[in-house]
């Protein structure tokens, strides 16, 4: 990578940095944000029942 000029080096390292950011964010928040899931499932169950009834 020593032969890259400044602009290409910047793109290269920003690419690596963004990938690491995605990995870090995904890993740290792996189990976060699932609270609303139960509520949604409940709603779907009701929707499914309604559809079954209609059928």
């Amino acid at each position: 990578m020593g032969s890259f000029d400044f602009g290409v080096s910047l793109a290269f390292w920003l690419t690596i940095f963004s990938t690491l950011l995605c990995v870090y964010y995904g890993a740290v928040n792996w189990n976060k944000g699932s609270a609303e899931k139960e509520k949604n499932v409940e709603h779907w169950a009701q929707e499914e029942d309604k559809i079954d009834e209609e059928l």
């Binding site: 928040n29 976060k32 944000g33 899931k37």
Partner: peptide
């Protein structure tokens, strides 16, 4: 949920 999106990142 947001959890799936977090993992997908």
């Amino acid at each position: 949920s947001k959890r799936e999106l977090n993992r997908a990142v």
